[in-house]
Amino acid sequence: MDNIRNAHLDDAGKIRELLEQLGYLHTVEFIRTKLACLLGDNSYRVFVYEIDEIVVSFITLHFSVQIAYEGEFTTIGFFVVDENVRSKGVGKAMEEYCTNLAKQRGCALMELYSNEKRVDAHRFYERQGYQSYKKYFMKML
């Protein structure tokens, strides 16, 4: 898809703005540092979606080997579509692009975590074929 491309470090400012829409408040330098780590690791991919050369969405993917499955797992770490262009097909295009990439890599499944309060996002994921699992555990370190 012409609107989707690999992210690069110059996207850090716009990615920071998109994360702010979800309540994550960080500096551009913080995001640039994290983005550099992701872009330097072959198990991660970061894509952006542009409209008129303006980044309006980004997604991070992590590919990991799972010992009990034939294929890798693909985990969506963060996926944000600018609130001004939601429900216009951007999210669907991004998710389908990443699903196709995961299939090409021979992945067994695609997973993600979505905060309980993001009800609209949950409806989107269900339309895209994801199933909800009720248990998620985390430990802050």
Rank of each mutant, 00 (worst) to 15 (best):
Ile59Glu: 00
Ile59His: 03
Ile59Ser: 01
Thr60Trp: 00
Thr60Glu: 05
Thr60Ala: 00
Leu61Gly: 00
Leu61Met: 10
Leu61Phe: 02
Phe63Asn: 08
Phe63Lys: 03
Phe63Thr: 01
Ser64Phe: 13
Ser64Trp: 12
Gln66Met: 08
Ala68Phe: 13
Tyr69Glu: 15
Glu70Ile: 14
Gly71Ser: 05
Gly71Pro: 06
Glu72Trp: 07
Glu72Ser: 11
Thr74Ile: 08
Thr74Ala: 14
Thr75Tyr: 07
Thr75Asp: 12
Gly77Gln: 14
Phe78Ile: 13
Phe79Arg: 01
Val80Ser: 03
Val80Lys: 00
Val80His: 01
Asp82Asn: 05
Asp82Met: 09
Asn84Leu: 07
Asn84Gly: 09
Asn84Lys: 04
Val85Gly: 01
Ser87Tyr: 10
Gly89Cys: 10
Val90Gly: 00
Lys92Val: 13
Lys92Glu: 11
Ala93Met: 08
Ala93Cys: 11
Met94Phe: 06
Met94Gln: 00
Glu95Arg: 04
Thr99Lys: 09
Asn100Ile: 11
Asn100Phe: 02
Leu101Met: 14
Ala102Tyr: 02
Cys107Phe: 03
Cys107Met: 03
Cys107Asn: 01
Leu109Thr: 10
Met110Thr: 09
Glu111Pro: 00
Leu112Gly: 04
Leu112Asn: 02
Tyr113Gln: 15
Ser114Ala: 15
Lys117Trp: 10
Lys117His: 14
Arg118Asn: 15
Val119Phe: 13
Asp120Tyr: 13
Asp120His: 04
Asp120Met: 02
Ala121Met: 04
Ala121Asp: 06
His122Lys: 11
His122Asp: 09
His122Tyr: 07
Arg123Val: 06
Arg123Met: 03
Tyr125Trp: 11
Tyr125Ile: 11
Glu126Tyr: 03
Arg127Met: 08
Gln128Met: 15
Gln128Pro: 03
Gly129Ala: 06
Gln131Val: 13
Gln131Ala: 15
Tyr133Phe: 08
Lys134Thr: 08
Lys135Arg: 12
Tyr136Ile: 05
Phe137Val: 12
Phe137Asp: 06
Lys139Pro: 01
Lys139Thr: 07
